[in-house]
Design a protein around this nucleic acid. Structure first.
Lengths: 341, 341
DNA sequence: CTTCTGAATGATAACGTTATCAATTTATGC
DNA sequence: GCATAAATTGATAACGTTATCATTCAGAAG
């Protein structure tokens, strides 16, 4: 098997020292070489088919120009757009991106942290699999967290203001005349359920109304979107078969919202005439559903971009860094699933 | 800044040579060390917080245990599951995965090929952005293509039998009594449109029927799923406003199928009573639509797994390799959008 | 024609592993 | 006990870059 060409081969080919060759091939713009030599090197490199070995360079420079993203599950519709934004932004700044899925498994997540250290990534963007994720193993690797929770007060975070987003939806439903709003939450969202309930009750209190009782639908939420959807359907079916019906449903994510839509359609409940539905996240499926799903949109592209920019800043200025916490606003996208009560 | 601990530091700490330390820390199972020394090394490593530098190891071993995936766009709902399967399989065999998006841009794609060479990946799985993608720059890197087209006859490929899949759908629609089937294709799918038309006509011929005229709906297909959806809606709206209506629509992908569903719902055309719709791909949105979309499913997890396994084989046996072409069958998933004519 | 300056080039030591071979220790058989 | 073999361990040269320092060379000034 033919050995890979190195800088030394180029040097031999053009009769210059490897130092000079290196300067031409990888030096910054402000290097000093005679125009003549530059061409000699370049054509020699071209001729023998030289390609820089990034491993060697990274080892020597103690810098890989690579960052890692750690998320739970790429098949979760929430993530791809986020990842794309990170990749795009990083690319512009000369960084490559390694993306790792932990399947919500803390052990795999920890393995990935080890991997990051071993491969010497320059930084990391992490969506913690659990509120208890131990980030200490990352050591001195600069990182930014993708989370809006207060579970990680000491770290840099970029996330959405979900509470405010939820209020946006409730306020709009109120404006449309809805008073009997059901709250549909996925159970296993760790800390998720409780604050949602809180926001819900605060909202009614603010309006001087009694929060409706028996309007709280809870379903198991799995690590698999499809299974979650199935469970959500079942819960919603049971709920809508009951006696006290809401005029609107606020679902704490789009999967739950879509399940609500499907059940309503099946039961012949017209959306939005008889029932309004609002989801949360803004995933693609919500745009192609029937009717298209009104949702509290999280701007994933923006989150990704901001996380990337923050990380780059942090990489460049590792000392004297003060913790940054970015909370981006959600926005309500009104589509066909909401209307007057 | 505290320097990272190396194998030499461990050696100092435990009073053994770095060679021995290396043997314990990274040697295969069949190494020879006294049980005693092993423990000395391990506890010393533990104590000073040693972590292997993968860059140095890769450089020395000329092997990175990393492979790259090159695809067009991670936000395309077709890809995440495929990538996940590749990652899972590769993980089992000790490989890490770098995933690169080229946005359908051949220049970025070529840049990515360069990147693969520079970072010395052990192999690559590539979904070519175009039928004309130049793969020569990959040089000696072993790779497998994700494609079912005959555009790359000389390379290893893993893909679906889309023609057979399309026939599956048409046959089933025929069985359900449909004779007036519309073919809905996205225009810019390079080689896609033509063979679909061919399969369509062959099908009618086989049945001894005249292929219906004016039953061919064409729409621009963009690199962005959302824009495509919008254009698909417009095309389908125009078509369904016409005089000769089909009893069924075969859409060449799920996005087009979902657009058809939405237009039909809007027009008060009952699916499946008045119109049956079949899509292709089996993306998530098709499961949560109303009604759930019948589709020709491509088993992306299986494609990913087979591509990964094929690549691993090829990496292990670089010489004497003979081109492998895997064509996996599609399967029809019947959901609510199809019924008797 | 020197001397001096700055620009251009060259030699070489890292970076942290792994793999090879040599050196040492331990076990075995007579 | 001693020779021999086997099991451990140690020294060291790669891997292909980059960065530092030393050297050479061309040009300017005296």
């Amino acid at each position: 098997m033919r050995r890979r060409k190195t800088i030394v081969d180029v040097a031999k080919e053009c009769g210059l020292s490897q130092a000079t060759v290196a300067r031409v091939l990888n030096g910054q713009k402000n290097i000093q070489v005679k125009g003549n030599t530059r061409e000699r090197v370049l054509s020699a490199a071209q001729k023998i088919g030289y390609s820089r070995n990034a491993l060697a360079a990274s080892l020597r420079r103690q810098k890989t120009n690579t960052i890692a993203i750690s998320i739970a599950d790429i098949t979760n519709p929430f993530f791809p757009e986020l990842i794309k934004a990170i990749q795009d932004t990083m690319r512009q700044y000369g960084y490559s991106v390694i993306q790792l899925n932990n399947e919500w498994n803390p052990d795999i997540e920890q393995e990935h942290f080890q991997y990051m250290i071993q491969t010497c990534v320059d930084g990391a963007i992490i969506s913690p699999s659990h509120p208890t994720t131990n980030l200490d193993p990352l050591g001195i690797i600069p990182f930014v967290l993708l989370t809006n929770s207060e579970d990680f007060p000491a770290y840099d975070t970029v996330g959405n203001d979900s509470k405010e987003g939820m209020n946006l939806a409730l306020e709009r439903l109120y404006e449309l005349g809805h008073r009997e709003i059901a709250l549909f939450v996925g159970g296993s969202m760790s800390s998720g359920s409780s604050w949602r309930l809180e926001v819900f009750h605060n909202f009614y209190e603010r309006k001087g109304l009694e929060a409706p009782t028996n309007m709280h639908v809870d379903c198991e939420f799995s690590i698999n979107s499809l299974i979650s959807f199935e469970k959500a359907r079942n819960s919603m079916e049971k709920f809508l078969a009951g006696s006290n019906l809401p005029t609107a449903v606020f679902a704490s994510n789009d999967i739950l919202g879509l399940a609500t839509l499907q059940v309503a359609n099946d039961k012949g409940i017209n959306v939005p005439d008889q029932l309004s539905v609002v989801g949360m996240d803004g995933i693609f499926s919500g745009e192609v559903s029937y009717p298209p799903l009104t949702t509290v949109n999280k701007n994933r592209a923006e989150i990704g971009r901001m996380a990337a920019l923050t990380l780059i800043e942090k990489i460049k200025q590792p000392i004297g860094w003060e913790t940054k916490k970015l909370t981006l606003p959600c926005n309500l996208i009104e589509r066909g699933s909401t209307g007057r009560a």
